[in-house]
Amino acid sequence: MTHAPDKTTTLDAAIDEYVPDGSRIAFGGMGGRDPEAAAREIIRQERTGLHVVDDARTTLFDMLVGAGCVDTYVGSWVGTSLISQGHNIRNAVENDVPHHLEMRDVSNFGSSLMFFAAAMDVPFIPTRSMTATDIPTHNDALETVADPFGSGDEFTAVPAADLDVAVIHVQRCDRRGNAQIFGNAVNDHLKARAADHVVITCEELVSTDVIQEAPETTRIPFYCVDAVAEVPFGSHPWHCYGHYYADLPFYREYGLLSRDREDFLDWLDEWIIPHDEYLEKIGADRLARLEELETTINGGRGRVRADGDDGFADENDDSADEEVRA
């Protein structure tokens, strides 16, 4: 972490520098505002041996596992969503394809707490969760401890997450790395403090003046951040609150193709490409439509570049095209 006044870089340079093979890594978002473009870049750079230390993970993780990038996972939940299972995850755990994925479970609160412990630099945090179940039985990193103050209650001690890097997508960030999150933050403010290095990808790179207009949304301050890359539509096919809704038909297609190994490898060939080419392939009209959908429900909150018009209400309004910087 540095206090450099300008941490901006490109997505490929940030991944190249901060996500080497064997990294212990966490990703931001959770079935919404996920750093999908960054994950695709990790696959494109053919990383191997990653240890994902995380919370509930969806398509991004399924894709990384199917591409052979991941050796182990510590976390609370894996799948994708209502419209698909995590087929690659199951294939790796049950059938060792493309190779075995070692899973170590915690609960959702357990995942928050492992980041929280690391973020405040203590070795563990106690919780009532997970106590007396099989979660600690099959995860040697968890310990059952008695209350040292004598209440007689037992707790599960959750060890601090040991993270090399966190990769987090946010709505907007300045050059110094003041990252603002609109809508829910999930565990991102904690992951940014738990990791040795932090890569921020953002919908919009904004001036510090804009950050100062809403300082209460700066969940990740500059002193946590190493690199900032402007990556518009960096969460596609997921939602980015205030910016665009999820591209569920795209996502369903992924769910269908990932059921078969050959089909999934074809999907990788087709979609693991530099992000600007990816957006071009998706198409500006389609991306604009996703922005309009989100505007219908959340009014373009946190968005600087857009005018917030709902393109559905006024069909002759073509300003939506100008909003897309593919």
């Binding site: 969806t58 999930v186 939602h239 609150y241 569920l248």
Partner: peptide
């Protein structure tokens, strides 16, 4: 559709 679906906003 998912736990951070923006319709929850």
């Amino acid at each position: 559709q998912s736990i951070s679906d923006s319709v929850l906003g």
